[in-house]
Write a protein that binds this DNA or RNA. Structure first.
Lengths: 207, 207
DNA sequence: AGATTTACATACATGTCTGTATGTAAATTC
DNA sequence: GAATTTACATACAGACATGTATGTAAATCT
């Protein structure tokens, strides 16, 4: 076959990543051969090995393409707790609407053995987890400063709690068969998670 | 080699399970060959295949030997929320003190691809997750009935929240390098998680 | 326009894993 | 105590995965 244009090569690379995500999600990362990925992408292993060093490298690319789920510092308004809540709800909404992101997280949380070459991937994952924790903690600190956080709630601890909570939520939500069936309860759990941390001051709008 | 006594055979079976847990934890379930397990247990693959149908079956045995982590209906006393809290703390404590249980959960949460034969294992896992959810929800219902739950907290939602929270806690805690360093904060997160759900009645002892 | 890369496809060498079939000597059964 | 299981070890067959080396025709560079 002829050499491809630079743009075509980039297309090929993207196709490999997308197909890798699909196949990983179907068969698991370790259980998937690069031959399967190549076949799904209509190329040979040669192409895969040209674009990526090995499977772990490919998996990192899959991860990188999806990126972070939570974006707290974006458009949303309101006090710190409201911003945190809508950040969490937005993340959930992205998972619901973005099938690719969902697949990526499904692979990361249920279809990958973090061992050997993949411990590096896990460290990466934990690093973005630490970022999540930092951002959430910062929001709780702001809430504390503004007296809208319950006085007996420590920002650092609350941040950790939310980190645990959302990690588990993702893990469980992703493996639930009928996700739309638990949508309402999941949203309610998020709202309740935040609401119970809010100081009981004068009359406040919950909604 | 000679045929083993029934008791010896049972010993062999146990040895295989324990070694499987170790090797799975080191190399991941999918990435581990039954030859490795057999070697670690000082037997051949013949023995492994005699005792277990295949790797998934062996993994189920590893899981079954460790059993559930949470035992809420046991000895602890106090009101529903106190019992829930000590149940969660006990589960954490078991993970800290019981290296085998820890290894099993590490494998289940970080070193296994739930795909193919292993989807059955995941279903099993989710079933015990559902049991957890039911028990926790029952405790919140009791707390609600006894007016010690915040009136704006719905037992079912709180149960779900706690389920998410503890699932994430396990996952994160198990992959943290220096676990003793985050012990205090983890305990505090559990306590805070429960405390924020308690109704603010008259004077109560937090400790 | 010629030289040089590039973007793969093909081929090769090697190792590994699985499941099953068969062998066997001693426990266990009757 | 003879017949039958049992608890494995050994052997076999087939598939499959990985990484690299090599080939090649067309882009891209100069």
């Amino acid at each position: 076959m002829a050499r491809k244009t630079k743009a075509e090569a980039e297309q090929t690379r993207h196709r490999i990543i997308e197909c890798a995500r699909m196949v990983f999600n179907r068969s698991g990362v370790n259980n998937t051969s690069l031959e399967e990925v190549a076949h799904a992408a209509n190329v040979t292993r040669g192409a895969v090995y040209w674009h990526f060093k090995n499977k772990a490298d490919l998996f990192q690319a899959v991860r990188a393409q999806t990126g972070r789920l939570l974006k707290l510092n974006s458009s949303s308004t309101g006090d710190a707790l409201q911003r945190l809540q809508s950040g969490l709800l937005n993340a959930l909404h992205r998972l619901e609407s973005d099938a690719e992101a969902r697949a990526t997280f499904e692979v990361m949380l249920w279809k990958c053995e973090y061992v050997g070459e993949f411990t590096a991937v896990r460290n990466d994952l934990m690093k973005s987890g630490q970022d999540f924790l930092d951002e959430v903690t910062a929001l709780y600190s702001e809430a504390h400063k503004n007296k809208i956080l319950r006085p007996d709630v420590v920002p650092e601890i609350a941040g950790l709690e939310t980190f645990f909570f959302f990690t588990g939520l993702l893990k469980i939500w992703l493996t639930t068969d009928n996700r739309s069936a638990i949508h309402r309860q999941t949203v309610a759990a998020i709202e309740s998670h935040i609401a119970t941390k809010r100081a009981e001051s004068i009359h406040k709008k919950t909604h």
